[in-house]
Nucleic acid binder design. Structure first.
Lengths: 106, 106
DNA sequence: TGAGTCCGTAAACATCCGCTTACATAAGTA
DNA sequence: TACTTATGTAAGCGGATGTTTACGGACTCA
């Protein structure tokens, strides 16, 4: 999960992920969309793949990548668990605080 | 949002955020919990604060920090928008694929 | 087999990160 | 005022990161 968080923390990798979320793409296609070199794309794809966020499939010399929904779903679940019930509790608390501030000053 | 994603990508900062999600804490208290120096905590707090994920309040010489629910909520909303409807679509698609694979091979 | 295409790996580079130690600043207290 | 406590800032270090160019390997097609 660590790996997935680091993977999406980089803007270039988020752009890349957006692309393969829409449709399956070869490395070269991604490279020209993002306007970086092939190797750079390759290395980002290693990171995303090790994070479980993309799947690879080969067709001849072309390596085709697409987003892996299970990986994204796990990331979402991890984050929900991370802030958990505390986030809802804090939001209510903040609202209550704001309300009492207003009542004091108006 | 960039800032928030980078902020939570670092494990130490996630630990820190977990602490101040539970209760308001001073820098020194955080430092002894995480077993790193005060300056290290200070610097992580700068990152978290610029990302809008923590709030600061001062009481005498003590600087008290706590999680900022609005910031976390914005991060959650950003991620939901990021994968958006495509995640649900892909999950259904993957399920369908798996089902047809099973039908072929069994 | 050989040429061409697509991709990954290696090496090199500059930059960024997280941490530490040393010092500076601000608030509380005698 | 001087002393103590809590925190922030500066400088510096080692290691990770993102990128490029150069090269090597795998596949296709004649």
């Amino acid at each position: 999960m660590e790996a997935a968080l680091k993977a999406i923390a980089a803007p270039r990798r988020r752009e890349l992920l957006r692309l393969v979320l829409e449709r399956e793409l070869a490395v070269g296609e991604i490279a020209s969309e993002l306007e970086i070199s092939g190797p750079a794309v390759s290395q980002h794809l290693v990171v995303l793949k090790e994070a479980g966020l993309v799947d690879e499939r080969r067709n001849g010399t072309r390596h085709l990548y697409r987003a892996r929904p299970q990986g994204l779903e796990e990331l979402r679940a991890y984050l929900e668990a991370f802030w958990g019930d505390r986030l809802e509790a804090l939001k209510r608390e903040a609202e209550r605080e704001e309300r009492s501030m207003r009542d004091e000053h108006d």
